[in-house]
Structures are given as structure tokens and as C-alpha cells.
Amino acid sequence: MTSVADVSESNLVDEARVTPVVRRSKVDRAYRAVATLSGSVVFVVMALIGGFLLYRGIDALRISGWGFITESQWAPDMGGAFGIAAVLPYTVSIALVALFLAVPISVATALFITEYAPRRLRRFLTATIDLLAAVPSLIYGLWGLFYLQPRLITLSKWLADNLGFIPFFEVNEDFGTSLGVFPSSTFVAGVIVSLMVIPICTSVMREVFGQAPPGEREGAMALGGTRWGVVRDVVLPFGRGGIIGGSMLGLGRALGETIAVTLIISPSFDAKWSIVEQGSNSIAALIALKFSESTETGISALMAAGLALFVITLIVNTAASSVVNRSRSGSATEI
């Protein structure tokens, strides 16, 4: 007897797709509900952050109007004008200085870990990069203030003396450049922040570089390519998304960095091109420094500044995540 023959045409059930009925037990339904609920907490908190900052900052925004974007002074408590026209450019330029230094170093470090380092060193380096990320920014700030800054300003001075014709390195000092005009600058703050950005960029880039297709890699090797050839022709093109995304994640972090910048800079409210000259600022540092001395309007203005920072980092980071996710395959390991 063959069952194929037994089932006559008339007995055949319809081939149309069935929707499998899944009746979950009470426990499973509760489990899914709890997981969904805690997942939605993230949505709620994010909405609350934006909502509360707006709610608290709206008073100040009403007072300042568009001046909040165009005004560079910050004197809300004295009934004066206030705005982020100076603070925001400073924030961005600190972050850009940080990225300018951090991206090449991160690319090199990530390449070193995935391509150049001996196997045993790889694990150690990965752990070290993780440790760099775990060092509190306070410690970076202290070290930068006491150890690095006195050494770094000699470089600032050299830049001002020799490349002073570039607006970034120009110093307005009529009686010549003494070392005293270089501390607490955008440059010094940027260097410190770059140290904090490096681990973030590196870990993203390392992950993406590591996923470069081994076939192409071996192909390039088999064609007699040098290691640099493999890196240039296979790893870097493949990892471009990782480099861009990692840098943008770093940018997000650099924009919001607070304590280290607060320790380094001396607040300035006049936007200027020079990055080596004393005086800089950032939204985060502004909040940290002005918070304790502000009254009602001042707090409201700080909330508005915080909202601006929140929105900017949100945009930068969402863009970064989408770039990184596009270049990263999310496949899980199978047993």
C-alpha cells in the first residue's frame, strides 16, 4: 500500500496557506507583556526628556525669541540677553578638534587590532580599548588639566607662531605670544575629548573591519598583495560605513562631553576662529558651570540650552546608528 495512491484527489485539503494558531499560556502572555512594557519605558523616558526640557525651557525661549540662536551673551538672570550663538560654535569646534585627532588614531587602532596585531595582543588591546572607555571623564579632565595642558600649550604656541596666518591658529596678542594665552583653549579641550572619543570610534570600526569578507581578503593576499594592499583594497572600502558611523557616534559623544571640558576651559562668550587661544565654551560646560548660580530664568535658559544639545546629539547619533547598522550584518551565530 502506498499512501500517495490512497489519498484520492477529492480527499486533498486545500493548499492555501494556513495561519498557524498560537495560543499562548497565561504565563507566556504575561512574559511578553512585561517585556513589551519595559521596552516601552525607553520610549517614555526619551519622550519625557524632550518634553520636560521643553516645558521648563519654554519660558526662557519666550523671553529670548530668536535671540536664543543669534545672541552670544549669556546673562539671563540679570534680565540681559542670552543665546547659544557663541556656545554652540565652541561646542562644535571642540568636537571637531576631537574628531580630527580621534578618527585617524581610531582607524589605525582598529586596523591594528584586526589586521596587524599578533593574535595574543588582539584580545589584550580590545580589553584596553574597553578600559579606556571605562575611565571616568573626570579623570581624563584632571589629567588633561594638570599633566597634558602644560605640555600641549608649547604645541599651541608653535602653531600660533608658525601657522598664525591660518585663522584657526591666529592669536590676538599685541605684545607677542607668551605661553600664558594658550591654556583653557578649544584646542586643549578638544585633545582631551579626543581621548574619550577614541574608544567609541575604535570599537565600532574594529567590529566592522572584522567583518570584511575573508574570501576577498585571502584573494588579495593570494594575488601577492601586501598587507597594506589588503587594507586599502578590501578592508577600508568594506569598512567605510563603519568609519563614518563610528566617527559620527564619536561626534555625538564629543558634543555632549561635560566634565572634562568644564575643567579645562575658561568660559568665553565671544565666538572666535582661533582654537589655540585661551577661552572656549560648550553647552554642557555652560550648564555645569552656571547651574548653581542661576535663578529661575537662568535655570529655564539652561533647560533650553540642554534641549538644544539633546536635539543635536539625537540627530547626530540617529544618523550615525543608521549608517553603522547598514554596514553591519546582524546575523546571529547558529549551532
Partner: peptide, 8 residues
Amino acid sequence: MSAVPSIV
């Protein structure tokens, strides 16, 4: 959310 600046 992981990018929310700590001061914020």
C-alpha cells in the same frame, strides 16, 4: 538614548 549627554 545611549547618546543622551550625561548633563542632559
